[in-house]
Amino acid sequence: MTDLYLQDWRAWTPHREAAGESRLDTQDKPAGKAVPAMLRRRLNLIGRAVCDMLATLDPETNRIVLHASRHGDGERTLEMLYGLNEGDPLSPARFGLSVHNATAGVYSIASGNRCSQQAIAASGSEWAALIAEARGYLADGQSSLLLVFSDQPVPQRFAAYAPTSLSAAVALRVGSQPTGGAQRLVETMIPTGDSTLQPLDIIDWLMGSRQRITCAISRRGWQLEPVRS
């Protein structure tokens, strides 16, 4: 299996304490400074956070972006469906930003990064899918790429059908080679594990409050280990 190293990360959630960790942004409203105001006005909170994190992790703007989210912008999608039901015409701006690759698209426009992008939804296996896709790109010759995992609360009407999720986003720069300070991602097959992994779980793991994360659907577990010199 292609080796995968975590080179750097950034995260956003108002639901955790940063406790001195500068890579975690806990503001209620992320700045969104990486995006010009005329583009930023259309982003939701997750979108503002993601664009800022990607800009920080990829100053060269030459890396592929894989963006996973289980539900995407459920609120916006649902509002449009309510509107259609009332016979109202669709808002073009709202429609444009409701698609699953919208945030990555805005980042691409704002940064000028014209590399491939991929939007992923995997019924609770988003993390496993991100890692599998990342290994594919690294095996194919990419030296590093950007992974994003974000989700927000499911709209109230559908809350009973999905696990509770809190607003959180995490962006990681991973590569095929260890760079300074990089950690190796160790993946193991396991018989059972957490039902789903959400962005907040990944943040807890990166912050060190969990040693291992697991996903029952994909029967895999992940740990980070220091790179031996």
Binding site: M38, P89, S91, P92, A93, G96
Partner: peptide, 17 residues
Amino acid sequence: LGLDSIDALELGLALQK
């Protein structure tokens, strides 16, 4: 003002409404 093509569609919709 710096509006774009999506704004044009949105504005068209608002004029209609």
